[in-house]
Computed example of a mutant assay.
Amino acid sequence: MSTDDEVRELLLVMPRIIGRIKRIAVPDALRELELAPRHLSLLSMLLLDGPQTVSELAGSLGLAPTTVSLLVGDLSRKGVLDRREDEADRRRRIVDISDAHRQDITAWLAAGGRAWRAALAPLSAAERRMVVDTMLRYESASAG
């Protein structure tokens, strides 16, 4: 199979994947919160890695702490996130998904994580890294 054949196959599959992602219904309890795509990565990181500080989230998301702080503030005002003092260091704030929205957010976003796990599970660690690196290169190349 040539590179052009594989490119052709990817050009066919990507719109189907994006279409399926776009059709994932936002739970009724979250619809009125007007969550934007920028919020989804942050919420996904909290689901995967648990409560974190703004600095830890910034590192996970590859964003500036000030940007993450603005996102956290926005989601906190909407009641989606809770901020609490770190028991080990009272100067730090720990961010987590609020109990009021955890079940809906988990049901909504966990399917993507399950799909990626299923797709990556049969691969070796090196092959998984290659998939991730390829996606990152594609993102960079498609940005112009």
Rank of each mutant, 00 (worst) to 15 (best):
residue 1 M to T: 08
residue 2 S to W: 06
residue 2 S to M: 08
residue 3 T to I: 14
residue 4 D to N: 14
residue 5 D to S: 12
residue 10 L to Q: 07
residue 10 L to F: 15
residue 11 L to Q: 03
residue 14 M to G: 04
residue 17 I to L: 15
residue 18 I to M: 10
residue 20 R to F: 10
residue 21 I to N: 11
residue 22 K to H: 08
residue 23 R to H: 12
residue 25 A to F: 07
residue 26 V to A: 06
residue 26 V to M: 14
residue 27 P to A: 07
residue 28 D to I: 07
residue 32 E to L: 05
residue 34 E to S: 13
residue 37 P to T: 09
residue 38 R to Y: 08
residue 39 H to Y: 05
residue 40 L to P: 01
residue 44 S to K: 07
residue 46 L to K: 03
residue 48 L to S: 13
residue 48 L to M: 14
residue 49 D to H: 15
residue 49 D to F: 11
residue 50 G to K: 06
residue 51 P to N: 05
residue 51 P to K: 15
residue 53 T to I: 02
residue 53 T to A: 04
residue 53 T to W: 00
residue 54 V to R: 04
residue 55 S to G: 09
residue 56 E to A: 15
residue 58 A to H: 03
residue 58 A to I: 02
residue 60 S to T: 06
residue 63 L to E: 12
residue 64 A to Q: 11
residue 65 P to G: 04
residue 66 T to I: 08
residue 67 T to N: 07
residue 70 L to R: 13
residue 70 L to M: 12
residue 72 V to M: 01
residue 74 D to M: 05
residue 74 D to Y: 06
residue 75 L to Y: 01
residue 76 S to H: 10
residue 77 R to V: 07
residue 77 R to N: 13
residue 78 K to V: 07
residue 78 K to F: 08
residue 81 L to S: 03
residue 82 D to C: 09
residue 83 R to F: 01
residue 84 R to T: 14
residue 85 E to A: 10
residue 86 D to P: 02
residue 87 E to P: 02
residue 87 E to Y: 06
residue 91 R to K: 15
residue 92 R to T: 01
residue 92 R to H: 01
residue 99 D to C: 04
residue 101 H to A: 05
residue 104 D to G: 02
residue 104 D to Q: 15
residue 106 T to P: 03
residue 107 A to M: 03
residue 107 A to V: 06
residue 108 W to S: 03
residue 109 L to T: 02
residue 110 A to V: 15
residue 113 G to K: 08
residue 114 R to K: 08
residue 115 A to W: 14
residue 117 R to H: 13
residue 117 R to C: 10
residue 117 R to K: 11
residue 119 A to L: 14
residue 122 P to N: 05
residue 123 L to Y: 02
residue 124 S to T: 15
residue 125 A to V: 11
residue 125 A to R: 13
residue 128 R to L: 02
residue 132 V to Q: 10
residue 138 Y to H: 11
residue 141 A to Y: 08
residue 141 A to M: 14
residue 144 G to D: 10
